[in-house]
């Protein structure tokens, strides 16, 4: 009697394992095999070490690395422009150490990154927060495990697959989250950004509390990872933030110094949307009080990066920073920021 039941357990389990794995493989909600017909939320929004690891070990050419700004970049946009398979492995609120860890793993696989070199990711003091520390260790542990017993057999992917199937049956738009963000009304309030960003050092834990640069050795380590097909990009924020960085805690100078180290030590392209330009000057390009650009802006940015065009007069677009134009560019941007007039509402 017991032998019969043991066999039943064994075969039922094998069948269950097979059915769930096949379902998850076929639906592939996180787009490990293909980003087509996938919900943008699953492609961009989650910070999961196991998903990042599975993506790094899949067929990607480009990997999007960065903080929450990268959540606004649909990898399909890059795939459509470049024809190269792209995965998004961003971490919300990432530090430079976390991003560098991801970049090094991407390079270990012989692939390339598009790396968002953000101001607030360059604030080393955030690494002192225990939650950031714990997250780094979790990512490190996960990214160092290379065996995927459960790539298609875990509760998370199963739930996502079921959600994907239900949403598809209901006819939900694949781009729902990004469309919703694109349609959001921009209502920038300067005082809010001044008081909540931490530039005033008025908060215990925030993006810019106790702004402290990474050492140049640490930035060089990152820069050296870049080859000529890799891209570092400084993604845009609403212009008023650049005003804050120039006024408080010497953030602008500290950040510009990191940019200089990066540019002087890397073979990768470094694109900048810092300062005043066609994107950063339009309030309607941003949500979350100017902190995040709208997803539709990413199309413009990456079109410019991958298909550079001749700049027409009075047009301010992204700039490819090279060793040659570095100093001129930074001093121009710095002067330009001095002209920002704050309209406080």
């Amino acid at each position: 009697m017991y032998k019969k039941h043991i066999l039943k357990i064994f075969y039922s389990f094998l069948l269950t394992l097979f059915l769930f794995s096949v379902m998850n493989y076929l639906i592939d909600p996180y787009g490990y095999q293909s980003r087509d017909d996938k919900f943008v939320k699953n492609l961009t929004m989650f910070n999961k070490p196991n998903v990042a690891n599975a993506r790094i070990h899949s067929d990607g050419y480009y990997y999007l690395i960065g903080s929450s700004r990268m959540a606004r970049v649909n990898p399909i946009v890059i795939e459509n422009i470049t024809g190269k398979k792209t995965h998004n492995i961003k971490i919300d609120g990432a530090t430079l150490s976390e991003n560098r860890l991801l970049a090094s793993k991407v390079k270990e696989q012989g692939n390339f990154f598009i790396y968002s070199f953000d101001v607030f990711s360059s604030n080393k003091s955030r690494e002192k927060y225990s939650e950031i520390n714990t997250r780094y260790k979790t990512y490190l542990k996960e990214l160092e495990s290379s065996i995927f017993f459960n790539k298609y057999f875990n509760s998370d992917i199963t739930i996502r697959s079921i959600q994907h199937a239900i949403k598809s049956l209901r006819g939900e738009n694949l781009n729902k989250q990004h469309l919703e963000q694109n349609s959001r009304y921009s209502d920038f309030r300067f005082n809010l950004s001044l008081n909540s960003s931490g530039v005033l050092n008025n908060l215990d834990k925030s993006n810019f509390s106790n702004f402290e640069s990474y050492s140049s050795e640490e930035v060089v380590k990152l820069a050296k990872l870049g080859t000529k097909d890799d891209i570092f990009i400084i993604l845009p924020k609403y212009e008023s933030f650049y005003y804050l960085f120039s006024k408080y805690q010497d953030i602008e100078n500290k950040y510009f110094s990191a940019i200089s180290t990066l540019v002087n030590n890397t073979q990768a392209q470094v694109w900048s949307y810092y300062g005043l330009n066609n994107i950063t000057q339009k309030e309607n390009n941003f949500i979350d009080n100017g902190w995040h650009f709208k997803p539709q802006v990413s199309n413009i940015i990456f079109q410019e990066v991958f298909e550079p065009r001749v700049q027409i007069e009075n047009e301010r677009i992204g700039v490819l920073i090279t060793k040659e134009n570095l100093n001129d560019y930074l001093s121009f941007v710095s002067q330009d920021i001095g002209n920002i007039v704050i309209k406080d509402n």
Partner: peptide, 8 residues
Amino acid sequence: SLMNLDKN
């Protein structure tokens, strides 16, 4: 349980 083994 197996599905939750490597919970992230």
